[in-house]
Simulated assay, not measured.
Amino acid sequence: MNAMPQHDDDPAARAADSRLVRDFGLLIKSATRLEQRIDGALRRECGISHTMLEVLIRLCRRPGDEVSQRQLADDLTLTSSGTTRLIDRMENAGLVHRVPSPEDRRLALVQPTTDGRTAFLRASAVHARVVEEYFVKPLSADEYAHLTHALGRIDEALRDGKQ
């Protein structure tokens, strides 16, 4: 039987176990688990997905803003067809409605309905509770401040970076 190479002698094993790979994996794993907790609580308690809440956040953030499906797709990093399907489901649930853009008839603007605003308020309370429990409470105030500052700097570098 051939023995597997020792970790120290295997460049692939060293690369897979590198600090950068492990640290980034921890970030992704934590974000994914938090997303799953939020999504599960929203589905159970409000009957909407986390992605639907993200749409409602965008639509309710600045009342009166004209938001197109294209802008939502960009904001949520979804495909155009994925956004269309999501808005179809939300429209069927009575959370949003589409109106033609007065400037460009090719664009549909998305607006929250009264029921959508009510669902948003309920869902935002659930979201806040889960985020507080699993994102804020495990850290000291200083750790939380450092984390959010660092995440802001990473986001800024990614937005400003040319690819």
Rank of each mutant, 00 (worst) to 15 (best):
R58S: 07
S30D: 11
A13T: 06
L42W: 04
L26M: 14
R44T: 11
V21W: 04
I48Q: 04
L53M: 09
I38L: 09
P11R: 13
E54M: 12
E54I: 00
H50S: 11
S18F: 08
A12I: 10
Q36H: 11
L20H: 10
L56F: 02
E54A: 14
T32V: 11
A15Y: 08
V55S: 06
A16G: 09
E54T: 03
A31K: 15
I57W: 06
R33G: 03
T51K: 08
I28L: 14
V55W: 02
R14I: 09
E45D: 12
R14N: 08
I57N: 08
Q36L: 10
R37H: 09
V21G: 03
G25H: 05
I38K: 06
R33F: 10
T51N: 04
R43C: 03
R33M: 14
D10Q: 05
V55M: 08
G40Q: 11
D9V: 03
I57C: 08
L27G: 06
C46P: 00
M52H: 03
G25S: 15
I48N: 03
R33V: 08
D39S: 10
G47R: 05
S18Y: 04
R14K: 15
R22E: 13
L42E: 06
F24W: 07
H50R: 13
A13L: 10
L34F: 06
A12H: 09
R14W: 01
D17I: 02
